[in-house]
């Protein structure tokens, strides 16, 4: 009996601080945000009072106005769709580039893998903004990349294109910044695969292509899922990259939300946008979970 109670104390001591931290700094703000999304903005930013009278011209109390407004203007839905498209595209490109790289690292001699992983995360050692500014320089209209591309286009009688301040630049930036988040979980997964499985597959008649699709790929699905989540979700909320690399039309949800808090100072609308984003992401996650479970079920059949 004393041993059990000691165990329980340890469990509380270990799990207590992080739980408390999350309650205080994640759950509480989330609830505040949910509430804020049903309130009116204050005249000078912030929130109008929920009870009692506000300043002259201020509405007070609770309202569905923010949600109604969001659905009434297609532009917001359009930004949502565009943001999801950018996030999806960036995730896909990251996956296509990261998979071969992760596979290469995982199949390298043991001693060399750590160095290669280090190289993958090396960009994190320099400041994020500096790296994005470097991209701005690289993609600039007077730089070799743009001039040679436009030169080539001119040869075919095609018009000039701008690399910087475009959706293209946004996706390049997103992919560049988030690539390591795809490589690492994929590598961690692939590295654990038992090489004997590939031998067995080959022994039983599978050629290289079949060995990949029948063994390596299905076993790496958990890595693909976690890598995709680690890229997709941050890309959805990212505002710095569209701000710096995108054109005026390349507004994404992140920018929209940021604007509500730092620009227009309409906190309730910003809160509502943020909540809508969370709900849609969770919806996607639920569908993905359902699909992967159905996949597993079919595998068994």
């Amino acid at each position: 009996m004393p041993k059990r109670s000691a165990e329980r104390t340890t469990r509380w001591l270990v799990s207590g601080p992080p739980t408390l931290f999350m309650l205080l700094f994640f759950l509480a703000p989330s609830l505040i945000m949910v509430l804020a999304s049903f309130r009116y903005p204050g005249t000078f930013g912030g929130l109008a009072p929920m009870f009692g009278a506000g300043r002259p011209g201020e509405d007070t109390g609770l309202t569905l106005e923010n949600y109604r407004f969001f659905l009434s203007d297609f532009i917001y839905v359009e930004i949502f769709i565009k943001s999801f498209a950018v996030a999806l595209l960036s995730t896909l490109i990251c996956l296509l580039m990261a998979y071969p790289l992760a596979l290469l690292i995982a199949r390298s001699p043991k001693g060399r893998r750590d160095l290669m992983v280090l190289l993958v995360i090396l960009p994190f050692a320099s400041n994020f903004l500096i790296r994005v500014y470097a991209l701005m320089i690289l993609l600039g209209p007077q730089q070799a990349l743009a001039t040679s591309l436009n030169g080539a286009l001119a040869l075919f009688g095609l018009g000039r294109v701008n690399l910087l301040f475009s959706s293209f630049a946004v996706v390049v930036g997103m992919v560049y910044v988030h690539l390591p988040f795809m490589v690492l979980p994929l590598y961690t997964n692939l590295e654990k695969h038992d090489p004997a499985l590939l031998d067995a597959a080959q022994d039983l008649g599978a050629n290289g292509w079949q060995r990949f699709w029948r063994v390596t790929f299905p076993l790496s699905l958990p890595g693909i899922f976690s890598g995709s989540a680690l890229v997709f979700i941050p890309v959805l909320g990212m505002f710095a990259i569209p701000d710096l690399l995108g054109g005026t039309r390349d507004i994404l949800i992140g920018n929209l939300i940021k604007d509500q808090f730092l620009g227009t100072r309409d906190w309730p609308f910003g809160s509502m946008l943020s909540i809508m984003l969370t709900v849609v992401v969770l919806g996607f996650a639920a569908i993905a979970a359902r699909l992967s479970r159905r996949d597993g079920a079919r595998e068994e059949a």
Binding site: A196, D199, A200, Q202, D203, L204, G205, R214, L219, E299
Partner: peptide, 21 residues
Amino acid sequence: PPEQRPIHTVFQSYALFPHLS
């Protein structure tokens, strides 16, 4: 190559595909 030899192996570790029934 191994995949074209009419020879199969039972490995000591079995090497069953963990994701397949």
